[in-house]
Design a binder for these strands. Structure first.
Lengths: 247, 247
DNA sequence: TTACTTTGTGTAAGTTTTACACATTGCTTC
DNA sequence: GAAGCAATGTGTAAAACTTACACAAAGTAA
């Protein structure tokens, strides 16, 4: 790929670091925030963790967990900081989804927000809800959030629905050891559909990423199911070509 | 969804607009930019439009087309502005992909960049390359871009490869009327694979979104193929359930 | 008219998906 | 401890889809 020669058509001057720096400084600066949609799975329902808005204007509304990004903080770092602060948990699944930047989206001025979603195992978290303003909501009952958080939530929920079909995210919402029934309930809750039990099992056994740990459920009032773990290391090694055009 | 009563655990004060505004003002502001990966399809190759870096530090490198987001400009608007400026074209396909915000990514200071990709019909654009610094590059030969643009490019290219299999994006890269051979060449170029000609046709005919416009190719040195248009309005009306768990 | 190149088409084999029912296990309760 | 309950665990046949593959027909070039 040859470089083009300098010509009179190259009418833009080469910029020195100084010029660039002053452009970056100037008035072109905008507040950046991160908002996290934190999903959990409890009592066979998909849940999302919300907080009461701390703004007078939205006092009766719920909102996502978020904060301004610090000037010396990576975006992902910022999202992890929020997760850690609010859930007490580390090493959570986290994925950036979309950046929301409509001019009027925030009453405090121009704030552009990078949306993430995260998946947590509610068992681990249960012990730690100290903050009375936090609340787990059924995803179905999430309506009319503060700011544009309803948009953000919807976008993240759709993303989760798509991703969970193509990647083994779901296991982050379950205990380490789970039964196939729990796994199926999870998929049904996320996707909002009923699945055939036999075909569901066949599918997962065929993928061959479940480890039979030779334990069974306890304290269930019926025949206990076998427990499994997800074989992450086998999953990592797989190489899947995926060419399948279909609209 | 009952609101929680105020308690002493609600230790955060409700914030007035003033407080919020001052938080948004303060030092927490960051420069925001948009970078566009503009794809084209020409001579059976997938191309990307690059510009020579305007920074001294990266003088010998190519970079994506981008600009700072103006304080009163939506993100998408900003991306469209860049597209319009650089290609002269309106109403292009555009999709936001990811936001890149590593601390050290830009030498001019903290700049967070929202990445988009766009698809253009090179026929329309050809007449308008006035700017000698712009250049179409084969995607295969894109290496060592300025800043973190190689990352951004890779991410957008992967996104395109995925999306083009699930949505009818590809047609934005082709002339309005196209032959099945052109369509297949496009898919092969984007995905980097060879596809079986008969099965490819069968697939598209089965999807039933191609309109046979009863014209044939001209000026080809062999039996001319039939030309088709994509039936967008039929596509919009389709409702596809898509439940297919597969890692 | 011949040679060349590319279009257009069908089928059989293999694979995947779907729909569907019954015996088994462990717990509960009577 | 027998009977009833509620869930687990398992297989098969039909349908749908995917793959591999070859030859006649159309138009161009010489």
């Amino acid at each position: 790929m040859p470089l083009l020669p300098e010509t009179e058509l190259n009418n833009k001057p080469v910029k020195t670091l100084k010029i660039i720096q002053s452009e970056v400084q100037s008035t072109n600066r905008i507040a950046l925030s991160v908002d996290c949609v934190i999903f959990g799975f409890d009592e066979n329902k998909l849940k999302v963790l919300l907080i009461r808005s701390d703004m007078k204007k939205f006092q009766s509304k719920w909102s996502l967990l978020g904060d301004l990004v610090k000037p010396d903080e990576d975006l992902d770092t910022s999202a992890y900081r929020i997760l850690k602060q609010r859930t007490g948990l580390d090493h959570l699944f986290l994925e950036q989804v979309h950046t929301f930047g409509s001019i009027g989206r925030h009453p405090g001025g121009r704030v552009v927000s990078v949306a993430y979603y995260s998946l947590i195992n509610v068992q681990h978290h249960k012990l730690k809800i100290l903050d009375n303003e936090l609340h787990w909501h059924d995803v179905d009952s999430v309506v009319d959030l503060a700011f544009d958080h309803q948009d953000i939530f919807n976008t993240c929920y759709c993303r989760l629905q798509k991703r969970v079909q193509e990647h083994p995210l779901g296991f982050s919402l379950l205990p380490n050891k789970f039964s196939l029934r729990e796994l199926q309930n999870l998929y049904e809750a996320i996707l909002g559909v009923k699945l055939d039990r036999r075909n569901f099992r066949k599918k997962f056994f065929a993928m061959d990423f479940l480890i039979d740990i030779d334990e069974i459920e306890e304290n269930v009032p019926h025949r206990p199911g076998k427990l499994y773990k997800f074989n992450y290391s086998k999953y990592e090694k797989r190489d899947k070509k995926w060419v399948g055009i279909d609209f």
